[in-house]
Amino acid sequence: MSNQEEILAALKEAVVEYEEDDCAEAAQRALDEGIDPMVAVMDGLAAGMEEVGVLFDTNEYFVPEVLMCADALYKGLDILRPHITLDADIPKASVVIGSIQGDVHDIGKNLVKMMFDVAGWDVHDLGRDVPLESFVEKQLDVKSDVLAMSAMMTTTMMGMKKVIAMVKEKNPDCLIMLGGAPVTRDVANLFGADGYAESAGNAVSEGIKMIGRLREFQKGDIK
């Protein structure tokens, strides 16, 4: 195994085995050895989290393990992130995220947030039980590309529709992504959202797709 492969494997394993110290150490080694930090994040940390997802789906891991894996991942990410240099031509994507008013479920939302962090987005986390107006205010304030909302109850889900109407009225270009157990793609469409993801795993790629579509639209490629 090459040095790089070995370090990436160590990062991955530290995430899967929820070893925070090992993860931090492997991240530091990646920097010391001159491995591209973006590669270390994607092929090390994110690859580990992907495996955690499989372990979760097969009832090998339960939520406590997943949360600890996320903690380990953040230990590595905190070290690698400051060293990631962004392409000046591609503006850094940003997201405002939160669980909707009345909903205190935030475990899933936090995992989605982690994926945006991993992907290097600017993440503004409003937490849970977020008043509808706060989503609007924050989005207008930081002018994020994406507003992501989580609802875990069929009932609180209705609040998202109101936020979408309020945000779109003030800022039609803001892209809105919905998620959470009761939300489906149909619901997201019906509420007027621009995107939906079933799990944390595909939230970021959906976000990127949404932004891509908007840019093409703005360039006039899509009518």
């Binding site: 008013q101 009345g102 039980d129």
Partner: peptide
């Protein structure tokens, strides 16, 4: 306790 007195519709009280 959060009671959501001004929200319309049904929202259950939660612990802030």
């Amino acid at each position: 306790i959060s009671l959501y007195e001004n929200a319309d519709g049904v929202i259950y009280p939660t612990v802030p």
